[in-house]
Amino acid sequence: MKVNIFKQKVKKQLWFLNKKEKNKLEDVLTQAIDEKDGEELNRPIAFSNQFLKTHVFKEKVVSTTQLFVLLIGILISYIVLLGLFLFGFLTSLTSVQYFVKPEVQLST
């Protein structure tokens, strides 16, 4: 496989990387091409998977404390959003009731 086609396929496979990771990918690609490892240049998907395993996912370690804080944050935001929804729903029902029966007193 030609070098430019190999680069294009690898970059297409790893389109979701951020800028720092793309720079690292470019360095690793130039190093692999300089070594001219023929077997590695014939399999762009395997090269992409190996790059993800060695350079992207090994750096991201999530501790249990971070997961616990994230879970608590999601729970609190869920409670707040549910409260806002219920408040809006009850307010809209009260206003509709006032338009249907105008003599009814609005409750606070």
Rank of each mutant, 00 (worst) to 15 (best):
K2G: 12
K2V: 06
V3S: 06
V3H: 09
V3A: 10
V3C: 05
N4H: 14
N4P: 08
N4Q: 11
I5P: 10
F6R: 07
K7A: 15
K9I: 11
K11E: 14
K11I: 10
Q13D: 12
L14N: 02
W15H: 07
F16Q: 08
F16C: 10
F16I: 07
L17A: 06
L17Y: 08
N18M: 05
K19R: 04
K20Y: 03
E21V: 02
E21I: 04
E21N: 00
K22E: 01
K22L: 02
K22G: 00
N23H: 14
K24P: 04
E26I: 02
D27P: 01
V28G: 02
V28F: 00
V28C: 03
L29C: 04
L29S: 07
L29Q: 07
T30K: 14
T30W: 11
T30L: 15
Q31I: 02
Q31L: 04
I33V: 10
D34Q: 08
D34A: 10
D34E: 15
E35K: 13
K36W: 09
K36M: 05
G38P: 08
E39K: 14
E40R: 10
E40C: 05
L41C: 13
N42A: 10
P44I: 03
P44D: 01
I45D: 14
F47D: 03
S48A: 13
N49L: 08
Q50N: 13
Q50V: 11
L52A: 08
L52C: 14
L52T: 08
L52Y: 09
K53N: 15
T54F: 13
H55R: 06
H55W: 06
F57Q: 02
F57G: 03
K58R: 09
K58V: 01
E59K: 04
E59W: 04
K60N: 01
V61L: 05
S63C: 00
S63L: 03
T64I: 05
T65C: 03
L67K: 15
L71V: 09
L71I: 09
G73N: 08
I74R: 11
I74Q: 12
I74W: 15
I74F: 14
I74N: 12
I74Y: 14
L75M: 01
S77W: 04
S77E: 07
I79N: 14
L81W: 12
L82V: 08
L82C: 08
L82Y: 05
G83M: 13
L84K: 11
F85L: 15
F85S: 11
F87L: 03
F87S: 00
F87I: 02
F89N: 12
T91N: 05
S92F: 15
L93R: 07
L93A: 09
T94Q: 11
V96K: 11
F99Y: 06
V100T: 09
V100H: 08
V100S: 10
K101N: 05
K101Q: 02
P102T: 00
P102S: 01
E103P: 07
V104Q: 03
Q105M: 04
Q105K: 11
Q105Y: 06
Q105R: 03
L106F: 06
S107M: 08
T108A: 04
